[in-house]
Design a protein around this nucleic acid. Structure first.
Length: 516
RNA sequence: GGCCCGUUCGUCUAGGGGCUUAGGACAUCUCCCUUUCACGGAGGAAACACGGGUUCGAUUCCCGUACGGGCUACCA
């Protein structure tokens, strides 16, 4: 029987989750769900120096906002608890020691100052220091030191790490889910630290132990891990875990919209788009980084956009719900090259989702804004029905609900000022003639549908011998104060007979004063 | 510098020896619709990094070069 598919997202709580991280989580989630498996959240907090308070909560909230459900792990619990590596600290030593015993790892006593010296020395010679088969016998470790010396140092509690003993002249190969077969030469892999002197494992050891213990079947992570993958393959092998080793998938990175390099927090500030799903306030500096949620993006749009950064369905469909993404996701369609991020396309996705919402749904979002702006929740113009109709009128012109108020405030509040440019340019004796007649005809009207209004305009124009085109924009200004806006006839029908007539009268009065 | 990964319109990408006049989307331009703006519709401009092979034939396979990215910590 096939093993149950289990993927995990394993971030470090060193700050807010970057959108690249969200995408990694998303792909892992999509794959697990497609296979009917589990998606776990594991927190990799083995570096106490980089721990940032609030980061873990942020990660959980961000995944939740995106609609990525955690089946197991931090915040959800599960039978492999705990899921925070700092709480699993004691479990890792055993495996590191096992590797030392089998000769696949060794104790190293080099102080950080000594390592620095070695690096500087190499640098001066135009080389890069690497703690590996070429240098390890010149360093202070249980391979280079006599046995009794090692025992003495250990018994005296000399600070030490455990390093991987990488074999010489071996080819290390593995199959990556997005890149196919990848080959590395062992001589180029350094003797990575497995267990730090504070007793904490490094990422290299910890993620392997946890992935095996938690029965992870697919390890999905960013491309930055590809160079250390051979070391990981070696560790699985040395621990006797070849069978349990998950399939690896290394995802392409997200690149800056302009210039060189990978997408960073600074690009967002510089180019004015969020890099984070949620707003984040740095606890140390108080600095605030904006988030997609606070900018008014729908999580569905954000997720849809993110899914397409490096993956495509192979068809021409672009709008995908989470369920559709789950059904269609495939590593075969994950692109190998890094993806340059385009904030413009993100807006387009949001616009698509906004347009798909019903007027009723939009009204629910917009009503609180209206009440706040008008400062009077009881007002008749605040009625849900009225707001809903405005949403219908305005949504085609918007990308975010947050634009609705600017696009429609004149429907709630009669204008007190009138766009002078338009009046200056278009107002003449004919207009005067037309509007005098128009107001009378309007007042006599019993019905007030778009059609009724349309007919009245045409009739009045014909009677006064004026082309409708000459007065349409003036009519708009008289009623809304603005030279452009939502569909004019729709707007008048919505405002209703009495409101339109009174706005028209006031507008006319105002214009006549100005013109004389 | 060394090592690894990559390279199709400005951007995200489809395609992967002949089905291609290289398809779609964003952005851009033109027109239509709307007597506004937007939406929508129609159309335009726009790409296989370069050089060698392999082959009857290469954007597709191989090699090299260039360019881009990543890694090169007791960080993940």
């Amino acid at each position: 029987m096939e093993k149950r598919t289990r993927t995990r997202f394993a971030p470090s709580p060193t700050g807010p989750l970057h959108m690249g991280g969200v995408r990694t989580a998303l792909y892992a989630y999509l794959f697990a769900k497609q296979k009917g498996g589990d998606f776990l959240l594991r927190i990799e907090d083995t570096d106490q120096n980089r721990f940032v308070p609030g980061a873990e909560e942020y990660i959980i909230e961000a995944l939740h906002w995106c609609g990525i459900k955690i089946d197991e792990g931090v915040s959800a619990g599960g039978k492999f608890s705990p899921y925070r590596q700092s709480e699993r600290k004691e479990m890792y030593r055993k495996y590191a020691e096992q590797l030392v015993e089998s000769g696949h790892a060794y104790y190293a006593f080099d102080a950080s100052a000594e390592l620095d010296t070695a690096r500087k020395l190499a640098e001066a010679a135009g080389k890069t220091f690497s703690y590996d088969s070429s240098s390890r016998m010149n360093m202070k470790n249980s391979l280079s030191l006599p046995k009794n010396e090692t025992s003495r140092l250990i018994s005296e509690n000399t600070p030490h790490v455990i390093r991987l003993n990488v074999p010489v002249n071996e080819e290390i190969r593995f199959t990556d889910l997005v890149r196919g077969e990848v080959v590395f030469h062992s001589n180029l892999v350094d003797d990575k630290v497995l267990l730090k002197s504070d007793g904490m494992p490094t990422y290299h050891l910890a993620h392997i132990v946890d992935d095996v213990l938690m029965e992870i079947t697919h390890a999905i992570r960013g491309e930055e891990w590809l160079p250390s993958a051979p070391a990981h393959i070696l560790i699985y092998d040395f621990l006797g875990w070849k069978e349990q080793m998950p399939h690896y998938a290394h995802l392409p990175l997200l690149l800056k919209p302009d210039g060189n390099g990978k997408l960073s927090k600074r690009d967002g500030d510089r180019l004015g788009f969020p890099v984070f799903p949620l707003e984040w306030k740095d606890p140390a500096t108080g600095e605030i980084s904006s988030g997609y949620r606070e900018r008014g993006y729908y999580p569905e749009a954000f997720v849809n956009m993110l899914a397409f950064l490096g993956w495509n369905p192979g068809t021409e469909q672009e709008i995908f719900s989470m369920d559709e993404l789950i059904r269609n996701f495939s590593f075969h369609h994950v692109h190998k090259a890094g993806a340059r991020f385009d904030p413009e396309k993100t807006k387009w996705f949001n616009q698509q989702y906004l347009h798909k919402k019903s007027d009723e749904e939009l009204a629910k979002e917009f009503l609180p804004v209206v009440e706040r702006e008008l400062n009077s929740p009881q007002s008749a113009v605040c009625s849900p029905q009225f707001v809903q109709r405005i949403c219908g009128l305005v949504k085609e012109k918007a990308t975010f609900v947050s634009e609705f108020w600017n696009l429609s405030s004149y429907l709630f509040i009669a204008p007190s000022e009138y766009e002078q440019d338009v009046i200056t340019k278009k107002w003449n004796e004919n207009s005067s003639k037309f509007f005098n007649g128009f107001i009378e005809n309007l007042q006599a009207l019993t019905g007030f549908t778009r059609d009724d209004i349309d007919k009245t305009i045409k009739q009045t124009a014909a009677d006064t011998g004026i082309k409708p085109g000459e007065i349409m924009q003036l009519l708009r200004v008289l009623i809304s104060g603005r030279g452009s806006g939502v569909d004019l006839l729709g707007m008048m029908a919505l405002l209703g007979h009495d409101e339109v007539c009174s706005r028209l009268e006031r507008g006319l009065l105002n214009v006549k004063e100005k013109v004389q």
